[in-house]
Design a protein around this nucleic acid. Structure first.
Length: 338
DNA sequence: TATCCAAGGTAAGTT
DNA sequence: AACTTACCTTGGATA
């Protein structure tokens, strides 16, 4: 086990681990005590979180910010899969091809325990190099947003691996955040590879092949409901090599969204979630029910009828980092703000 | 205790 | 293209 610390003091705009992980943008982390996010500690409490990511998600060069310098996630994830396939020995232990990372925030630092040097992973996965002060400055001067920024100062946009993000947001349709988490955990337990770390067994998110080979009824048994065939068919598209969500990462925004919509169960909203929470398109604004309500109340002029038109209008209104605005507002509204 | 309803939407079928 | 409707499941609200 390796351990380390990332000092957060000199980070532009600070950092809030709990807000970042519990704000509904990522379903790849779990609390180390095994409890669900919403039945526990008060905000600001100290807590370990754990995630499992494919080896090479970063390729060692990832600390980037924003769209212009976005890491081409396509090559990253596919390279990691290839390298793990090409490594017959599997390296050290069971679960070769994956890294386990545990992290907690304490005393102005992000402490980690992991199977590898987790610092570059965490900088990338948690958006630590986003210039949060600039992002806040350039957001619209809206009272609602001001309150959200104040309550959850330091919340950052994650960059999760593309395939798990695609699947988890396919599962998110008509679901509550708590249940989405539960579904992803069950998927990992049933179909994900076991990874040993520090005397505990973790489960990686399933591979495309793993989910493609699951039967629809097996997936329905995990309470996926009508999303089960969507997950299976989308996983098949990736497994057979005809498409990969990471490919979208090298396209212009609206082209990328259209590309993602070829996956089954992916419409405009889910596509925007993948663009924002995995591929680093910080201008993406997933138009879910919460945000649509907020738009109706605070930005009625942006309601244009169609998703595409409203999306353009709200991106114009929210500015260059519209996705950040969306994420703060979503979490703030969902946790009782108004 | 029983019943109802909505949850971070999308696909498929009609006008 | 715009508009309807069906879709699984379940936690939480209402009677």
């Amino acid at each position: 086990m390796e351990t380390g610390t990332i000092v957060l003091d000199d980070l532009s705009g600070g950092f809030d681990l709990q807000a970042t992980l519990e704000s509904g943008q990522t379903y790849q982390w779990e609390r180390a005590d095994g409890r669900a996010y919403e039945e526990g500690i008060a905000h600001g409490g100290e807590q370990w979180y754990a995630t499992v990511v494919p080896t090479g998600v970063l390729d060692g060069e990832a600390t980037r910010m924003g769209r212009m310098e976005r890491e081409p996630a396509a090559s990253i994830e596919s390279r990691s899969r290839e390298s793990s396939d090409d490594d017959p020995s599997g390296g050290d232990e069971s679960g070769g091809g994956y890294e386990v990372i545990r992290a907690r925030q304490l005393d102005g630092a992000l402490q980690w325990e992991a199977t590898t040097d987790a610092t570059p992973y965490l900088r990338y996965l948690l958006g630590l190099d986003d210039d949060l002060e600039a992002i806040v400055d350039r957001g619209p001067a809206d009272p609602l947003l001001e309150r959200a920024y104040e309550r959850y100062a330091g919340l950052r946009i994650v960059r999760d691996p593309p395939f798990p993000t695609l699947i988890s947001f396919i599962c998110s349709a008509q679901m509550r955040v708590l249940r989405i988490h539960r579904m992803q955990r069950r998927l990992a337990q049933e179909f994900g590879e076991e990874v040993e770390f520090d005397g505990r067994t973790y489960h990686a998110f399933p591979t495309p092949e793993g989910l493609a080979s699951a039967s629809e009824s097996e997936l329905r048994e995990l309470s996926l409901g009508y999303r089960a065939p969507y997950v299976k068919r989308s996983a098949e598209l990736v497994a057979e090599g005809s498409a990969h969500p990471a490919e979208a990462g090298e396209m212009d925004f609206e082209d990328a969204r259209e590309y993602l919509k070829q996956f089954v169960g992916v419409g405009n909203k889910v596509a925007d979630c993948v663009l924002l929470f995995s591929l680093g398109y910080l201008e993406a604004v997933p138009l879910d029910t919460w945000i649509q309500t907020a738009i109706a109340e605070h930005y009625p002029d942006c309601e244009k009828g169609s998703y595409a038109a409203t999306s353009r209008a709200i991106r114009e209104a929210f500015g260059e980092y519209a996705g950040y605005v969306q994420t703060y507002v979503f979490y703030y509204l969902r946790t009782g703000g108004e």
